[in-house]
Design a binder for these strands. Structure first.
Length: 898
RNA sequence: GCCCGCUUAGCUCAGUUGGUAGAGCGCACGCCUCACACGCGUGAAGUCGAAGGUUCGAGUCCUUCAGCGGGCACCA
């Protein structure tokens, strides 16, 4: 068999995915066991405009590991993919294209034509991320792929809206909302980000009081809004102003008479203690306006320009121009007291970073406070969902649910779910599942549908149920809901995670998912968040190209929930690991004649060689640790267990220990058995690795002699053989053999000590040494005797003499092993006595230090009395062993010094 | 202002019931040893952010502080 020396990931990556997909391996229907347990995950739908970034790759890897693991465990497994229509982003993308290619705006071509364009765009460019997911090896069920604007999901959205409206939780009303003047739409509070403004200014403006010479000074960061002031507020307890409450102010520039009102909201210690009130353009002022029944004058329009109500002088000025002009006017009038430097934070659009304008307008809202009760109850009573890591996310989630406010649902966009509300000519509202229903309700055909669409997160909130068929009671919904885990990033816990919980509990009467796995954030190597605008993102596709998908995946899996700085060297390390796997398999395959997976480990374990019993014992422990770790979402631990089992136990020791048997020139039963065993262990390791490294494991598994449907999990027994449907190994406790492990451990220690001597004494690698081993303990001696040939091979010894005690030549390098065995390497003419003495002294020093520490601990009465007896005993044993070894080293050293 | 997290070897990170500090990379030395130089062997390297406390015993529990990073509230 021709097998290249180095693993080329491309070959495997190009072949297997298409075959898996075509064979239907990803769909739950592949599972033929009617009683199989169910495991399901819905993907956080990436934006249809998006392309893969590291965060996706991380989430997808975690989901795929879980999916593949459970599939191999025989679960009826569904990982459901899909994309989000991403209202604003997509609309803007298409508008840009329209402008670039045809110099048209959406208004030029009209709503209907524009939407056609968006759909065309989606068909043409929307498949990018799906292609990239195939590259990742994501084992999603493409037959169930969904898009948030699909017919079924659209129906779900309308159903959601209508039911909430009927319940009175959705309402239409005037409110002060976040308006993005660039995107020309309302935004929910969650889509707004606060940014510190370091070079901010605080303007102190003086307002004259009518019928008095006094002036009240107010401080503001937005002087232009004074044109819309309808009051000045002071704290009722503020003695400076108490006599002014009820007085009238003559508002400069506009000459409006406005009252001074008293309101607890005002902090007397801030600014001047007097606040200008602009109810139409500030959240707090709006609340005060409602409390005091103040007029609400809109002086800024949706373009962030001053309106007619701002006065002829200011009308149509940009808000910032207006600001300057207002300040200049105040200065002219001698009413500008001062301008102070002031740091504060401004709200900006989360998408385009334009400064938000609070605007008073009529919108649709959802009363989330009512909606949040059941998720809170679920957390309090059943502690669900379980967040991984629990800290700090459980608290973040809970705190948010405890302080819910109304959600602005409507968006002044064209691309999205149209609000299912119609108006008759009198302006009456009819909310219905279809226009037809609305007509029936209204008793007229003359209806106009609300032009707005819903916040994209409205449809996202339904994702786990809508993708499974809700509002119909489909089989999928019955089978796969609730889902097992949601894997996502921390920044959408409120926007999405909490809301899915709300809708799931409301409509499907059950939680949307049992667990929530919050992935870590991947930063660049300087600790900066990766972002498009900074251009510091690492493209997963490039990493795939450079190091292979499997290597990237296993690194991502071990990142898991940790915030980490990306560095390629880790991926390189796992690229090397992949190559190690490749070459271990290469070794097995080059020596596979007469051998088959599954053979060799038949019969009584006691008839196997020591190293066979050892590797099987190690394998069981690895299997146990890996499974446990995956189930606890501790992927890092799982990866470590796999890495060290494969590299250290299997490659460094097992293959080396069995090599002589496997590569024996004489064919025969013994050689066949040794070859079959190494193949069998390899095959099990490939299965264990498969969820993390799907491509290389499939590539190699397919090459192994003896693999076939008998290795598949019973639920897939009719399927075409593939490692992805093989049964995930289960730990067999009866094969754990502590005796074999300690026996091999002593051989490993012996080999390591001799290698150390060779290295320290500068013995040329090609040079053979003689080895003398003295083991007073009969059992230990038996172990060394049985492993003599292997030991000789591993330390390059020409011969090895094992006895109860020895009288080694003086010119020998020596070491004392745990348990009191001793080893000597005669080095006639080669030994550097001074160096050997130093080596031994160092060794003794280390032991003595340890002994001193142990003695100290054991002579502490408190310790002996209070620590558990077995702990004390353990330390005594250790001390005894060390004392003996120290003595022996001392003797050796003495003999040396003569 | 309130709440939370992080601080362990030069770098990136593990360390889950408190009981001899770990990995990978990097570094040093020696090796193309018949699976693998994407490799093999050997080695050096940490007062576990600081100070207290609880305990026979603390990287691990408690308190305070410092640096970094989150979340929430406020921001006239």
């Amino acid at each position: 068999m021709e097998i290249p020396k180095a693993y080329d990931p491309k070959l495997a990556e190009e072949q297997h995915y298409a075959r898996w997909e075509a064979q239907g391996f990803f769909a739950p229907e592949i599972n033929r066991d009617p009683h199989a347990p169910v495991y399901s995950i819905v993907i956080p739908p990436p934006n249809v405009t998006g392309s893969l970034h590291m965060g996706h790759a991380l989430q997808h890897t975690v989901m795929d590991v879980l999916t593949r693991y459970h599939r191999m465990r025989g679960y009826r497994t569904l990982w459901l993919p899909g994309t989000d229509h991403a209202g604003i982003s997509t609309q803007i993308q298409v508008e840009k294209q329209l402008r670039r290619d045809e110099n048209l705006t959406r208004h030029d071509i009209g709503r209907e034509k524009f939407l056609e364009r968006v759909w065309q765009w989606k068909e043409k460019y929307g498949g990018e991320i799906q292609r990239q997911m195939r590259r990742e090896g994501a084992s999603v069920d493409w037959s169930r792929e969904r898009f948030t604007m699909d017919e079924g999901l659209t129906r779900a959205v309308r159903e959601f809206f209508v039911r909430m409206y009927e319940k009175g939780w959705i309402y239409r009303g005037e409110g002060l909302i976040n308006w993005c003047p660039k995107d020309q739409t309302a935004l929910s509070d969650l889509e707004v980000e606060k940014v510190e403004k370091k070079d901010g200014k605080l303007y102190y403006l003086q307002y004259p009081i009518k019928g008095s010479d006094r002036r009240v000074t107010v401080a503001t960061t937005r002087p232009e809004t004074m044109l819309g002031d309808t009051a000045v507020a002071v704290n009722p307890t503020d003695e400076r102003y108490i006599d002014l409450v009820g007085a009238t102010i003559l508002l400069p520039l506009v000459n409006r008479e406005i009252p001074i009102v008293a309101d607890d909201f005002v902090d007397p210690t801030f600014g001047t203690g007097a606040v200008k009130v602009t109810p139409a353009h500030d959240q707090n002022d709006h609340a005060m306006g409602l409390r005091h029944n103040l007029p609400m004058i809109k002086v800024i329009d949706s373009q962030a320009r001053m309106s007619a109500d701002a006065g002829a002088e200011f009308e149509s000025l940009d808000r910032y121009e207006a600001r300057e002009k207002v300040v200049a006017k105040f200065e002219e009038l001698g009413l500008l007291e001062k301008i102070a430097d002031y740091e504060f934070s401004i709200s900006q659009c989360g998408r385009c970073r334009t400064v938000i304008e609070p605007l008073l307008s009529v919108q649709w809202f959802l009363k989330q406070s009512a909606f949040g009760e059941r998720p809170l109850e679920l957390m309090r009573e059943r502690h669900e969902p379980r967040f991984v890591p629990e800290n700090p996310y459980e608290k973040v989630y809970t705190n948010w649910l405890e302080g819910l406010y109304d959600w602005t649902l409507s968006r002044q966009l064209w691309w999205g779910h149209r609000i299912p509300a119609w108006y008759d000519e009198a302006g009456n509202i009819f909310v219905a599942r279809s226009e037809e229903d609305a007509r029936k309700l209204a008793g007229t055909d003359k209806l106009t549908q609300d032009p707005d669409v819903l916040d994209t997160w409205f449809s996202s909130a339904l994702w786990p149920i809508s993708t499974l068929g809700w509002p119909d009671e489909t089989d999928d919904l019955k089978t796969f809901y609730p889902t097992d885990v949601l894997v996502t990033a921390r920044d959408i816990i409120f926007l999405w995670v909490a809301r899915m919980m709300m809708t799931g509990l409301e409509f499907a009467n059950d939680k949307a998912f049992k667990d929530v796995f919050i992935t870590g954030t991947i930063f660049d190597k300087h600790g900066q968040r990766m972002s498009k605008s900074k251009g510091n993102g690492v493209d997963p596709l490039e990493v795939f190209d450079k190091y292979g998908v499997d290597a990237t995946r296993i690194v991502l899996a071990s990142i898991g929930t940790t915030d980490t700085r990306w560095n390629d060297s880790q991926v390189e390390a796992y690229r090397n690991f992949a190559n190690k796997i490749w070459n271990a398999a290469r070794f097995c395959l080059l020596n596979s004649e007469g051998a088959e997976v599954g053979k060799g480990f038949a019969g009584d374990a006691q008839t196997w060689t020591l190293h066979d019993r050892w590797i099987m014992s190690r394998l069981q422990k690895a299997v146990r640790d890996v499974s446990r770790s995956i189930e606890a979402y501790e992927f890092h631990a799982a990866v470590q267990a796999l890495y060290h089992f494969f590299w250290d136990d299997f490659c460094d020791w097992y293959i080396e220990l069995t090599k002589a048997d496997v590569t024996a020139t004489e064919p025969g039963e013994a050689r066949d058995a040794a070859r079959s065993r190494v193949l069998t262990v390899l095959e099990q390791a490939l299965r264990l690795l498969h969820p993390f490294m799907p491509f290389i494991t499939e590539e190699l598994w397919q090459k192994l002699p003896g693999v076939g449907s008998q290795l598949l999990h019973a639920a897939y027994k009719d399927a075409v053989p593939t490692v992805m449907l093989a049964a995930y190994p289960q730990s067999r406790e009866e094969l754990i053999d502590e005796r074999a492990e300690s026996d091999i451990a002593s051989i490993i220690e012996l080999v390591s000590r001799v290698r150390n001597i060779r290295s320290e004494m500068n013995i040329k690698p090609g040079e053979q040494v003689r080895l003398l081993v003295a083991a007073p303990d009969r059992a230990a001696r038996a172990v060394f005797e049985s492993g003599a040939q292997q030991i000789a091979r591993l330390v390059r010894a020409s011969d090895i003499l094992i006895s109860e005690s020895f009288d080694a030549p003086r010119a020998s390098a020596r070491a004392v092993l745990a348990g009191g065995a001793e080893v000597a390497v005669p080095l006639e003419g080669l030994i550097d006595f001074a160096k050997e003495r130093e080596r031994l002294r160092n060794e003794r020093e280390k032991l003595e230090k340890e002994a001193t520490r142990l003695e100290g601990q054991l002579s502490n009465q408190n310790f002996v009395e209070r620590a558990p007896a077995e702990k004390v005993e353990e330390l005594r044993q250790r001390l005894a062993d060390i004392a003996q070894r120290t003595r022996m080293l001392g003797q050796t050293l003495e003999a040396f010094s003569e």
